[in-house]
Nucleic acid binder design. Structure first.
Lengths: 222, 222
DNA sequence: GTGGAAATTCATTGCCCGATGAATTAGTGG
DNA sequence: CCACTAATTCATCGGGCAATGAATTTCCAC
């Protein structure tokens, strides 16, 4: 059991244990609601160790977030030759990453991005924009069409992440990856290479932004 | 400064003041990190009033979430007779609500809910679950199939909300509603009434949960 | 106007949090 | 095997939190 105090016997890579426990806890509760006591318990370690190794809760969080995955790199690996299989590749890759331990880290990033509109901007710029562009790059589309199809793909993939991982809605949260791929991949593929049903021609965002107008405003005050 | 205790003189719709203050506070800090003290201060009111009017912090949050819009009510209005037009109705209704001033309030709720698993649970229970069931109700499906198809619809709609409103990614954020409906409605319709491509039969969530496996765990301990 | 009901604040309770520092034990170099 | 350093736990502090109940004031029916 919990022996007395003092240095532990054998190996004990306590720092890593804390880091992993913190990653899970932050993913689960967000930064504010996660507690050092809980993290310590998950790591099987006294909460004081966290201060010993990381100083403060904030610094621990930074340590967790600074060990991210490069989405482009992951995506690029195993890109299929056939453009008609690209949708399947995207969905499967997404599921693989998010079902892995790295998924917790990704959850941390997504959750913490919601803390401010600046966080949302970061998520938009560095993840969505780059990832989506990487994803549709093999298709050799025009600039406008790449953006538009990329956005559509993003809606389906972002929605999958939301429902399955962030909100964990059943039954989708517990459905086998193969089944998810089977159902969603064709839809994603349609956004990539299918014929898009449009009433009055493609929504050619007429060069630059022309914000539609009286929408609630993409306010950045938060 | 603040006069003594006892009932206030004039009008004082305290309940509404608290509700508005709570909406802002939850939006800014998320459910867990928002404090009743802060909400009370924003509303210019003693925190004890919150307990007087709402009971607990959680009930206050529910009141905030349910205030902007009763999704069921909005959805029910204008339900098409033809099940094959249900997808279009869902997408169009969603865009109408989110493009309206109520959309700002909804955005607040979504942002704050995503930040912790607790907030996510509340969103899942009180909004998503009900909306999904209402949405697929006209189809007269079996329990399992309704849940499954509802989840799929939710991925597409939630993704639309994320990309267009929460992250405000261009060009989708500035695309005319009609164009969005034209492109997305067929996909949603497919989830509602189309034939779903499945490898080994429908993912009949085998009664109860069978958590896929070693994911970060949907633990509810927190 | 007077008596009760509703609204509001104050004072307090108990809990949990993050942080700190002393006490204790295990490794390590000589 | 002895000193020294690093790792770990324990006990505790001050603070902020949600919640409760009593005290006080206004409103309203009669």
């Amino acid at each position: 059991m919990t022996g007395g105090r003092g240095r532990r016997p054998g190996a004990g890579d306590t720092r890593s244990l804390i880091l992993a426990a913190a990653r899970d806890a932050f993913a689960e509760h967000g930064f504010e609601a996660a507690t050092l006591r809980d993290i310590g318990q998950r790591a099987g370690v006294d909460p004081a160790m966290i201060h010993h190794w990381f100083g403060t809760k904030e610094k621990l969080f930074q340590a967790v977030v600074n060990a991210p995955v490069d989405p482009q790199e992951v995506l690029a690996a195993g890109l299929p030759d056939d453009p008609e299989r690209l949708g399947e590749h995207l969905v499967r890759t997404l599921l693989t990453v998010w079902d892995s331990p790295q998924g917790s880290a990704a959850l941390v990033v997504v959750r913490s991005s919601m803390r401010s509109s600046r966080g949302a901007a970061l998520l938009r710029e560095f993840v969505l924009a780059r990832v989506i562009r990487t994803a549709v790059a093999p298709l050799g589309l025009t600039e406008d069409e790449a953006l538009w199809r990329g956005n559509l793909v993003a809606t389906q993939l972002a929605g999958l992440v939301m429902v399955r991982y962030v909100l964990a809605v059943e039954p989708l949260a517990s459905t086998a990856p193969d089944d998810v791929v089977a159902v969603l991949a064709p839809q994603v593929q349609h956004y990539l290479t299918g014929e898009l049903a449009l009433t009055g021609g493609p929504p050619r965002s007429p060069s630059g932004a022309t914000p539609r107008t009286p929408r609630p405003t993409p306010r950045s005050s938060g």
